[in-house]
Design a protein around this nucleic acid. Structure first.
Lengths: 153, 153
DNA sequence: TTTCATGTAACTTTTAATGTTACATGATTG
DNA sequence: CAATCATGTAACATTAAAAGTTACATGAAA
């Protein structure tokens, strides 16, 4: 199953934008992700419509966050991406004649809905500011390791 | 995102096999699913190795359940299929250098693991006999509707 | 007016599931 | 034993969605 990494990529990009504080071009963001600028524009287009980011053309232009990090949840981003499916498994047919398949769909559908609700709920509770805080923690941790290393020399 | 319907298809097939009570050929099972016999053989090969089904060649041959319906969970079937991914979303890179991406992976990974555990747990608690019971309920329901209809004529 | 950046259409590539064809192997039946 | 039936499997083709690419239009700033 080919996995959809748009949410992951978008979160990555949004955090870099917040970290920068100034507009970032699609080109710069594409380098962050190791991808193509057009992929960035395509992905960000949905976020702009939802009011999560803004774009500016011309010199000094690029992408900026339209809201504070603590005003954007993972759920907001997921919805802005068009709510791609969370569960990798599916039914063979949505409204089957066969009673056996109906029973299978009912059992699986219930399980899928449960997991999807859990995940969606989690997404709605986590804010980009939470990720940014975790990033800062990792950053400080690395700095301490480096300081220790420098001292040892 | 293209969804994986092998679990759904396999459950469907296993219930039909149980319902029949005699060996069913790949051809017959393929008709149930509206697919190709080779797809059936390919899918069932894994289940045979795990001891969920048996296959017999030649006249009167075909596929049979190797265990009772209440001795097979959805989890057993999922594992026999090679444990395909349950979550449709993924990371861009598994062990990124970038601290931002590490923070993203950590946050998403936790959410994914939670949902996956919930789904896997659900699968381990549901048996094929539960689905068969639901099928029987649907079957009786339909019979009653038909009886009522016949009476009305 | 040149340069930089987004906006977007159209296309190719990639990947995994799914479907198909062809043929070998083994079991049953007459 | 030979014909038939069924699985076993390799080697393809097809499909669908993400991802990547190319080309060019649009608009803003220097």
């Amino acid at each position: 199953m080919k996995q959809d990494s748009r949410l992951s990529a978008t979160l990555h990009v949004l955090l870099h934008m917040a970290d920068r504080g100034a507009p970032m071009t699609s080109e710069e963001l594409a380098v962050c992700l190791g991808t193509n600028p057009v992929v960035i524009r395509r992905t960000m287009a949905g976020l702009r419509e939802t009011g999560l980011v803004r774009s500016e053309k011309g010199h000094g232009g690029g992408w900026t966050l339209a809201r504070a990090l603590d005003a954007i949840t993972l759920g907001d981003v997921h919805r802005a991406l068009g709510e791609p499916a969370l569960i990798a498994l599916g039914h063979r047919s949505e409204s089957p004649q066969c009673l056996v398949e109906q029973a299978v769909n009912a059992a699986l559908g219930e399980a899928f809905a449960e997991a999807e609700a859990l995940l969606a709920g989690h997404f709605d509770r986590v804010r980009l500011s939470d990720l940014a805080a975790d990033f800062s923690r990792r950053f400080d941790e690395r700095r301490q390791v480096h300081a220790k290393h420098d001292k040892a020399l």
